[in-house]
Design a protein around this nucleic acid. Structure first.
Lengths: 206, 206
DNA sequence: TAGATTGTTAATCGATTAACAATC
DNA sequence: TAGATTGTTAATCGATTAACAATC
């Protein structure tokens, strides 16, 4: 058991390893090596061994890693050996897409609350989810003890939503609004902005 | 004019600067400083100055950066001083969401081609976009001289789509499928996988 | 035993920060 | 001129890679 803090950049790679392991397992593989896993995720074998070894000795010399065992360990480390409830704020196109997204459940998440401030949308159902008014957000999130939220409102409202979320126990925010938000100490934010990703690549086009 | 290669990580920050500058401009600001811009994007002032200075001397000592001027320069550097045509492959929920996304046009992109291999979807319209059969993809992308594609098919088909795209002039791929794809030298790939982002944060939750 | 692959250390590489002269 | 802020250099910090003993 290490007590020193693990660099955030290493934490960020674990989900990629887990994702690849799950695919290897689906294919019926039982063991893998840092070499093979590295090819699947596009990361050097040395780095994968170093990353994994931060958390324990999960491999066997001469053999490699047992896929099921390592997956389990990674799920425990990342705390996705359970299902987390997630709230979405903003039920426009993006919010709808995310609410319908089928890829969450087997990776540790389910959307259980949805909010919008448009009275025409409030009360509508998406699957078995009923859209609530944003004015009820803080109370509903507190009551459900939700820790994770996704912001899918226009950029101009994202900071206001983040400020409201600060009144709850939400400590992880996935922000789809194309703007950097300020949050209290201890709250993590991740950003998804397709235009930003595309602009990163056009630099290299001719 | 510098001839040495600019680190990719710096290129990746330029879109964030540009995004913040556009918001500052919307607010009516005329000049900004590395200090202020840094607060908007969550990056140190020193780093912003260093990043920007890789490309020229765009600021004025004692004054800061003219927002309009710097935006223009960044758009030129990133080559988003034009509109790029983009193709989407896979018209499920994600593909639909991306096709309808309103945030592309004023940041340099427009979706002009959409493909799916489901005969029931082929021929349907999304806005003024008609879904074509994936079998026509290579020919259509070549004919339209499209350089950017977004993959929104299930994980099991993503590599096959990438292999087809390798036959075209597409050199930038935004991959929504939760899998790492192999592409030829010179082709760039960016990934968007919300579950991966969420799993990065659950580590820190309790 | 021989072959393979881990876990770990030391060396390399690259990125960030601090500091300040230049100058608007 | 005095104050402010850039552009840039040198110092620090951290991450990646290479190499290999340990061991399955």
């Amino acid at each position: 058991m290490k007590s020193k803090e693990i660099p955030d950049i290493i934490i960020g790679r674990l989900p990629l390893y887990l994702r690849a392991l799950q695919r290897l397992e689906d294919r019926g593989a039982v063991v893998t090596s840092s070499q093979e896993l590295g090819e699947w995720v596009g990361i050097s074998a040395a780095q994968i061994r170093k990353d994994i070894s931060q958390f324990g000795e999960f491999g066997k010399q001469g053999t490699g890693y047992n896929i099921k065992f390592l997956s389990e360990k990674l799920r425990e480390i990342l705390k996705v050996d359970r299902i987390w409830d997630v709230a979405i704020i903003g039920m426009g196109d993006i919010g709808h897409g995310v609410a319908n997204y089928q890829g969450f459940l087997d990776r540790g998440f389910q959307v259980t609350l949805a909010f919008d401030n448009n009275p025409e949308k409030v009360g509508k159902k998406i699957g078995n989810l009923t859209i609530q008014d944003t004015s009820e957000m803080v109370a509903a999130i507190k009551a459900a003890d939700v820790k994770i939220a996704m912001i899918a409102v226009p950029a101009d409202y994202a900071q206001a939503v983040a400020d409201e979320l600060a009144k709850t126990d939400v400590h992880a925010i996935l922000n789809y609004a194309p703007i950097c938000i300020n949050v209290p100490e201890g709250v993590r934010v991740q950003y998804i902005d397709p235009a930003t990703h595309l602009q990163w690549m056009t630099y290299y086009l001719d």
